[in-house]
């Protein structure tokens, strides 16, 4: 098994306005993109890692640029009294460390 960071070119996380967050997984080529597309990196895994519900997670396959993207609403808007990552900018690290289980 490989970690996502060993297959992907890079992983990025960011807030998308105050109420949503998003992670983008960039791949060098179609082969590595397809490997992760058919792996455990799905809505339920994202929901478990980031503490949200699978049905709230939207998934996008951007075939033309070999990107897999997930977006979901934050539990609380950005900058709330117990905020832990305002721009969601460090959250990608935890996803990139995830073990990819290929189908």
């Amino acid at each position: 098994m490989a970690k996502l960071k060993e297959i992907a070119r890079y992983v990025r996380s960011k807030n998308a306005g105050p109420f949503w967050v998003t992670v983008d997984i960039f791949f060098e080529d179609k082969e590595s993109y397809e490997r992760v597309k058919h792996s455990n990196i799905q809505e339920d895994m994202i929901a478990k890692l980031y503490g949200t519900k699978p049905e709230l997670v939207k998934k996008f396959y951007c075939e033309n640029i070999n990107v897999i993207k997930f977006s979901w609403p934050r539990a609380l808007p950005s900058g709330n009294p117990n905020e832990y990552d305002m721009h969601f900018g460090q959250q990608y690290v935890f996803l990139s460390e995830t073990e990819v289980e290929e189908a």
């Binding site: 998003t22 939207k58 996008f60 951007c62 990107v67």
Partner: peptide, 16 residues
Amino acid sequence: PYTVAAHLVYENVDPY
């Protein structure tokens, strides 16, 4: 074409 198309996914919920 890659950098321009890829920018659409940045801090957007839906790139399309």
